[in-house]
Each structure stands twice: as C-alpha cells, then as structure tokens.
C-alpha cells in the first residue's frame, strides 16, 4: 500500500513539466527514503534524477519498495487537471496495475480522483558515483535559461568555460558567434540573485544546446541552478526543490573527433 500526500501539489505538476519532454516513460521508485526517479532520454545522452524526500510529504506511507512505470505524457495530462493550490495524493495498492492521483482543493470543497494505468518498463539504471568537480557555478535559474535560449538561436552547441574571470557560455553558427560571460557577483539584494563560482581548476566543455534548453524547463522549481563541471564527466545541472529534494540533469559532453 502506497499513500503519499503532498500539500504543495504544484511541485509535482512542475516536476512533470520539467521532465516530460526529455523522457517518455519512466519508473517512479518509492521507498522509505522518498519518491524518486532515474531515467535517460531515448538516445542515452541525458539523464534525469529526481528525489522528493519522504519528510517533505505531509503523509508518507510506503509499506514496501515499489516501482511504478508511468508514461510521463499521460501523467502530465492527469496532473494538469489539478489546480495549482490543490493537495495531491498519490495512491497505489500492492500488485495493482494502476495508480490514483487524488486532488483536493485547499478548502476541501472539491475532491477529484484520476486513475492511471501503469506500464512495465525495462529501464537501465546507471550508477552515478559522488564526484569532486573542477568547477561549480551557482547562478539565478532564470539567467541560465535566458542564456541557453539566446545562444540556441545562434548555434547548436555551447562551450561552457570556467576560469578565474568567470563562467563563459559560447556558441557559433552560420550567422556568427556569441559569448556570454557571467562574473562572480555576491553583492546582491537576495541570495538567489548571486552568481557564485567555486573553481578548483579551469575547465571547458561542449554540450548540445537542445538538451540544455530542455533542462531549463525545471526553472519554475527553483530560483537558482547549480552547474557542476569536470573535464572527464557529464555536466550536472541541478535544481533544488525547496524542503524536498532535487531534480538533477546529467548530460554527456561532446568530444572533438
């Protein structure tokens, strides 16, 4: 028996909007730790890892570890039927081939339940070790989204370079080139407006902008984004989900032939 009650139901709606274009089908894993997911895109170049910790739910009952295969487009269709202020409860019985999403309006005057068919998904689970990164950049998530969108109108790939001068995003295409440099800036009114660069050594890596733009669909989940880079590892683009966990995107770099 599984019953997870999330008072801030809009979080789950935002999570689905952030991942449904990257991944079609995924297994949601439920354990005592929380509600999690790890899934790759169809070309096995990008990966999303989601964790919503059990403590972040108002009520969290998960009698045994359960993996529920869901079509994310269908799940998104159902969650779009929840109001932004609604409380969302996810329910499933052991051995059932369906999951139920229950939506309660804040004043309890409307209660809806949507039952969705589960599916069997053979998913490959990658072991992602903890790593020391050569550079970690924290910046406003809206700024990162703006840069990715702007550069993708010029070129297909972005070179992200971190030096002691700052973090540089560069692209080139048929019409020309573009460079955006963000310097460390901690003299801001609000902490989430800061750009903070922790660099062990300079690093420069090339990535497909199409995926970067897909990751920025998580922008509504967090005011800041953390980008971790090492020359021999996929980039990690992390959006913290307040009080609950995170959504992390991994993208393999492009390497010169």
């Amino acid at each position: 028996m599984l019953e997870l009650r999330l008072v801030q139901g809009s979080l789950l709606k935002k999570v689905l909007e952030a991942i449904k274009d990257l991944v079609n089908d995924a297994n949601f894993d439920c354990s005592a730790t929380g509600f999690s997911l790890q899934a790759m895109d169809s070309s096995h170049v990008a990966l999303v890892a989601l964790l919503l910790r059990s403590e972040g739910f108002e009520h969290y009952r998960c009698d045994r570890n359960l993996s529920m295969g869901m079509n994310l487009n269908n799940m998104s269709k159902m969650l779009k039927c929840a109001g932004n202020d609604d409380i969302i409860t996810i329910k499933a019985d052991d051995g059932s081939d369906t999951v139920t999403f229950m939506f309660e309006s804040p004043n309890q005057d409307k209660i809806a339940d949507f039952e969705m068919k589960l599916m069997d998904i053979d998913s490959e689970h990658l072991g992602i070790p903890e790593a020391e990164y050569q550079a970690i950049v924290r910046m406003p998530s809206s700024e990162f989204a703006r840069i990715c969108k702007d550069l993708s109108s010029i070129g297909d790939t972005v070179v992200i370079s971190v030096t002691k001068e700052g973090v540089k995003f560069s692209t080139r295409g048929d019409i020309g080139t573009a460079n955006v440099v963000c310097r460390q800036n901690t003299t801001v009114d609000k902490p989430e407006e800061a750009t903070v660069i922790e660099m062990q050594e300079p690093v420069s890596l090339t990535f497909a902008l199409r995926y970067m733009n897909s990751f920025t669909k998580a922008t509504p989940l967090s005011g800041t984004v953390t980008i971790s880079l090492s020359s021999d590892l996929p980039i990690v683009v992390e959006y913290k989900i307040a009080e609950m966990g995170y959504i992390r995107f991994y993208l393999a770099p492009k390497i010169e032939d």
Binding site: M40, H44, L233, Y250, A252, I255, E256
Partner: peptide, 14 residues
C-alpha cells in the same frame, strides 16, 4: 566536428 558521447561511457550500469 564533435562526437556526442553517451552516458554509458562515463557511468556503469547498475
């Protein structure tokens, strides 16, 4: 030209 690596080049399958 750049060659797009796959994640399995960096992470092992569990």
């Amino acid at each position: 030209t750049c060659n797009q690596k796959k994640l399995s080049a960096f992470f092992s399958l569990n």
